[in-house]
Nucleic acid binder design. Structure first.
Lengths: 187, 187, 187, 187
DNA sequence: TATGAATGAGTATTCATTCAT
DNA sequence: CATGAATGAATACTCATTCAT
């Protein structure tokens, strides 16, 4: 573990608990067990971290793209998509809460825009394989369907994060799946 | 306009732009055109505002409950529900972005818990009329269906807020509606 | 009880607990159950209170002067002096702690100087009857003896105030008395 | 001079003039010629200073204990005790005024309690050598005598501090001494 | 006699950041 | 690679005081 990633890990832990604005460099370096000066040896600024995390998040989607590119029947692919997005919820809820706040905050939006410069292409790839998926599933407007799916997954994620204990995640997963794979009772 | 609500309005404007933690009392009082001290004449603390806004938000749902209680065919009620939630997006996107961040942040969760003390009952009422709606629509598990609907609406809202300009809100609305009212081509 | 004295009493209670600088006008008026503005209706400023209390304190000594002026044997008078100073300790320790701090603080010294303008004469009277007392007791330097007595009483008071529970006040009283009335074992 | 002790010295100067509550961190750091932030680099809080000073004060008594432990005739020891306590008055009156206020204020009492945790033992030692002294001098109740002596010294100190210019310190010293060493006219 | 609204200046404390070593 | 010393600017919050009513 380089000192660098030690600090990054600490930062993610702290941000997950107290948010970006609510966390200070002192909080982070205390959590990492290093001096504040060392933080500035590795990173340009506090905002710098946000860009790094935004990039990291975008990279998270690489395996999703590869999974959707694979030569598999669309039913398998849609199940893969749903599982990919919703399975990380249970293990990484603090981190995901942080990422969700990032999307909504001005700080985050700025960071994401900077990060996007390098990842625009990748993002378009993702959208493209999603469209391919819904086209293969027989939808007449695969782009809209991809957007709808993304929104629904986002909503389920968000509602889960608001109260993980009470949320019927598995049932929601199944409910969503039956919309695309006709093997269950939809009512 | 009492001094009190002048400050509250200013606070909402500022929070919407810069978030709760990102906004200072100085920002708020400057926006309101009053002294910092006057803020503390009316409010106990910065956190106090959060509780007030959380209560306000909970009150926003009163007309929704009344609308769903009305003696109307379920098709009309489901359309009312969807419209109620998604129509405010266009006019109040800044405010809603703030509320969404509130749900996700620790500050917000604390405030909501305090506010909830007075509104628990009302919230249960909302869930109850939603279940009635989906029961009337013929769903065998109306509670789960209500949760799914809520998640989907939340997801559409969130995705819209991330990029209002590009988001096909009307199409998503229609797509969602056809799930419950069989008059359109679902594919 | 006029509103005026209601506030003064409240102020003394608050000052006794938190000191002069540690108490705010808000603390005082809250304790008195009136508005801050009413405070300024009756008093010119916070410092004003200090002068008032300093005057009050100086007035406290009037009965002491009268008691020492009375035509009684010096043994009775010295006992009266000791009792007068030390008896109030038990009932009024909070108030006395406040007065003692007053003597030591710059705020207090200023206030006392202002108050003294009106009471200089009275104070000289007190010193004069004390000197008469020690002269009657046969001391060759009654002024010095008065100063010594005053210092000792002050010291006993102070030490008592530092820890009333553990301090052997009655024994100290007796010990002091035997210095002037030869009826006890001095060792 | 480390930055640390530079600030501590400045704090003592400021506290001596304006008291603890009457002094601000800004006052202290201005006096020390450093930034406010540096204060918090070295100290946890304003109250922290009080604990530090309380500890310092307790340490001041170490040489007194050693002096009283020494194998010397009790007459010499009692003279040492009186000199030790009263001699610092002339050089350090501002500092001592501050310490005396400390004893009386709630802030100070809290600080002293915290400081005492480490010095309880030392304090008991002091009391013990004082008792030994008065026992050697032939008093039947040395504990009470020690308390009486302490009170008298405290009182002389306090009265001196209230008006150093007019107070006959040397005469009081002699007066007190004759109580224990029979070589002078007590009247 | 009584108050609520209002404020400028100040309070302790924290922040992100820099720099010499 | 690593730190302690240092700071200007900001933070939430409080203060004594005034004034219109």
């Amino acid at each position: 573990m380089t000192g660098n990633s030690n600090i990054l890990d600490a930062a993610m832990r702290v941000f997950s608990k107290k948010g970006f604005r609510g966390s200070s460099i002192a909080d982070i370096t205390k959590e990492a067990g290093v001096s504040k000066a060392l933080f500035y040896h590795y990173f340009k600024s506090k905002e710098d971290l946000l860009v790094i995390f935004a990039k990291k998040r975008l990279e998270d989607f690489s395996p999703l793209i590869r999974g959707l590119q694979a030569d598999r029947p669309p039913e398998e692919r849609v199940r893969f998509l749903i599982d990919f997005v919703l399975n990380e919820l249970e293990n990484e809820s603090a981190k995901l809460r942080f990422y969700n706040m990032l999307y909504l905050s001005e700080d985050g939006v700025t960071a994401i825009e900077i990060a996007m410069n390098n990842y625009q292409e990748q993002f378009e790839q993702l959208f493209s394989v999603e469209k391919k998926l819904f086209s293969d599933l027989g939808f007449s407007d695969p782009a809209m369907e991809a957007t709808f799916m993304r929104s629904t997954l986002q909503g389920i994620s968000l509602e889960y994060l608001l109260g993980p204990a009470d949320y019927p995640l598995e049932i929601m997963k199944k409910k969503l799946l039956t919309r695309y794979i006709s093997n269950g009772d939809s009512k």
